[in-house]
């Protein structure tokens, strides 16, 4: 599976839609393989268990199939699919009475402090403890299983709204516009959530590289 991909073009979407309408099982399989696991994970932010999230995603696919004739191509196909998903997930979440306010989950980026801890700056705002280098060719190290696991863990530990935004933007390579549309989040809040998420992941990597240095 490719992780970072160009968003499908309108022509790709039109071809997929035509195939689905014609009952093409292969086209449906491609779509499901691409999006179903992501959908289940996103639904997890709204509902209490993996089993319910799985149900939400399955219900979404039925909604997609039954709504094919209503899809007008004003948004991309995947944005439309994820809008259906979040609507079903919100409804299910309310029914399962999770104490989270869903309408505001992405509207309120919360406040979890600065990108870099205050104490690394001098009072006038310049670096006191500047970032260390990550060694020669860090790109290679960043792709090792060990470091990929660190990234994964730091994403898992984020608040759900930050986690979903960084996953869609940086793991899956969606555009800002697509994420705003799919999650019904404003451009500004999307950016704030992404900023906090990326800053946290960078700090996890920094901790790793600083530790590796002193070993």
């Amino acid at each position: 599976m490719t992780s970072v991909a160009e968003p499908p073009s309108a022509a790709d979407d039109a071809a997929t839609l035509a195939a689905l309408r014609a009952g093409d099982e292969a086209a449906f399989t491609v779509l499901v393989e691409q999006y179903h696991p992501v959908m289940v994970r996103l639904a997890m932010a709204y509902v209490p268990s993996h089993a319910v999230a799985e149900e939400v995603a399955q219900e979404t696919w039925l909604g997609v199939l039954n709504g094919l004739d209503r899809f007008e191509g004003r948004s991309s196909l995947r944005t439309w699919i994820f809008r259906i998903l979040t609507n079903i997930a919100k409804t299910r979440g309310v029914r399962e009475s999770r104490s989270v306010s869903f309408s505001s989950m992405f509207d309120d980026p919360g406040d979890d402090g600065p990108a870099v801890p205050e104490d690394r700056f001098a009072p006038e705002g310049n670096w006191l403890l500047a970032p260390n280098g990550w060694g020669d060719s860090p790109e290679q190290k960043l792709e090792t299983a060990e470091v990929q696991e660190i990234i994964k863990e730091s994403i898992e530990s984020l608040a759900p709204n930050q986690r979903e935004v960084i996953r869609l933007r940086d793991v899956l390579g969606w555009t800002a516009e697509e994420v705003c549309n799919a999650l019904e989040v404003s451009e500004t809040n999307q950016r704030v959530l992404l900023h906090r998420a990326r800053s946290r992941v960078r700090r996890a990597l920094e901790a790793y590289f600083d530790g590796a240095e002193s070993r």
Partner: peptide, 9 residues
Amino acid sequence: QTIAATGKL
């Protein structure tokens, strides 16, 4: 680099 590495997940 963080963004690029996250894209490899």
